[in-house]
Simulated assay, not measured.
Amino acid sequence: MITRRDHRIDFYRGLALIFIFWDHIPQNPLANFTLRNFGFSDAAEIFVFLAGYAAVLAYGKIAQRSGYLIAGVRILRRAWVLYVVHIFLLVLLMGIIFVANSHVETRDMIQEMNLNYFLLDPQQALVDELLLRFKPNLMDPLPLYIVLLAGLPLVLPLLVKHTGHAVGLSLAVYGLTQWFGWNIPAHGNGLWYFNPYAWQALFVLGGAAALYSQQPRAADPRPLYRQPLFVACATVAALSVPIALSWKWPAVHDAFMPQWISERLYPISKTNLAPVRLVHFLALAYCMAKLVPTGAWVQHWLVQKVAMMGRYSLEIFCLSVVLAPLADMANALADDRLAMQLATAIAGVGLMLALGQWLEWNKRLTNPLPTATGVVSNA
C-alpha cells in the first residue's frame, strides 16, 4: 500500500531546482557550489530520479483507489499539460532571448541558446518544436519529462506488481542503449540531449525507490561503517570529489590521474547517462537516505520553504528557465559584474520562492483540505 509521503523528497526537489537555475546562468559564482562540482552527476539526476519517485507515489495512490485505467488517463492528461506548457515556454523564451540579444553587444545569445535554427527556417522549426525535435538550451529537461511521463501508464502496473521485473527491463533497455547508441533524432542531424532510452532507467529507479520506501522493514542495527553497501556507496561518492574538483585545474588533473583510470572513466556522457554518472548518483542517494533520515529537521522554516518549491516543481522550473537568460543579460550589462552576478542569482531564487508561496496560498484558498490529488498535481 502507498500511504506515506517522504517530505525529504520535496526538499531535495526544491534544492535541485535551485542548483539547475544557478547552473544555467553563465559564469555564475554560486554555480561553483552546486552538485556538479563535487561528483560525476548533477542536479539533472536528482530532478529525474525524484520525478519518477513523486510520479509513482502519486499515481500509484490513484491506481490503488480507482484502478490503473483512471491512473493512466490522469497521467496522460498531466503529460498533455506539460506539452502545452512546453510550447508556451518556448515562445516566451525566444522573445526574451531576441530582446536580450539586441542589448548585449559582446555575445550572440541567440546562437548560445541554439535558436539560429528558428531564424534560418522558422516554419520547419515550428513543426519540429511541435514534434519535440527542436529544443533550445535550458528547455531539454521538460521534453524528457513529457516522454517519460507519457510512458508511465505502460510501466506503472508492472512496476507496482512486479517491481524487480520492471527495474530489470528498464536496466536492460539502458544497457542496450549504451551498447548500440540508441537515441531519438532531433532537428537536422542532431539527437536528444537527454536520451530518453537512457534516462528512463533513473526515472524507473526513482519509482521503485518510492515503492520500496512504503514497505515496512526493520532498521539495520549495525553502525553504518559495518554495512557493506553503505561503505561501498560512500567510497564511490568520496572518490568522485577530488576527481571532479581536479577538472577545474587540467594540469593538476593530468599530473595525478593515472592513464588507465582516464581511459576507463572518460568520456562521461550526460546525453546517454554514462554508467559512472548513474552509479555515482545512486551511491550518493543511498548515502543521503542513510545519513539524513526524516525527522524534526524537515519542520525547519528554511527547509519547508525549499520543500514548497519542490511541491510545485513544474511551475518553479518554468520560471527558472525564464529567469536564467534575464539574469545573464543583466550580468552582461553590469559594470560591477561580480556584485550583479550574486544579486541576480539570489534574487532569482527569491522569485522562485515567492512563486512557490503564492501557489501554496492559492491552493489553500481553493482546496483548504489536503487530498491525494494535491500530490498528483505536482508529480
Rank of each mutant, 00 (worst) to 15 (best):
R8N: 04
Y12S: 05
H24M: 11
P26N: 08
N28A: 15
N32P: 00
F33A: 01
L35C: 00
F38D: 01
D42G: 08
L50C: 13
A51L: 11
A63W: 02
G67H: 09
R74H: 13
R74Q: 14
R77I: 09
R78K: 11
V81R: 15
L82Q: 11
I87A: 10
L90E: 05
I96T: 12
I97Q: 06
D108S: 12
D121M: 05
L130M: 12
D140P: 05
Y145A: 05
V147D: 01
P157F: 03
V160W: 04
T163W: 11
H165V: 13
L169N: 12
S170H: 04
A172G: 09
Y174V: 11
I184N: 07
G190C: 05
A198T: 07
L202H: 06
G206T: 12
S213E: 08
Q215P: 03
P216L: 07
P223L: 08
R226M: 13
A234M: 13
S240V: 05
V241Q: 00
A244V: 04
S246F: 14
T271E: 11
P275L: 05
V276M: 02
Y286R: 00
K290Q: 15
G295H: 08
Q304W: 04
V306Y: 03
M309H: 01
C318N: 10
L323A: 03
T344E: 11
L351V: 11
M352H: 14
N367K: 08
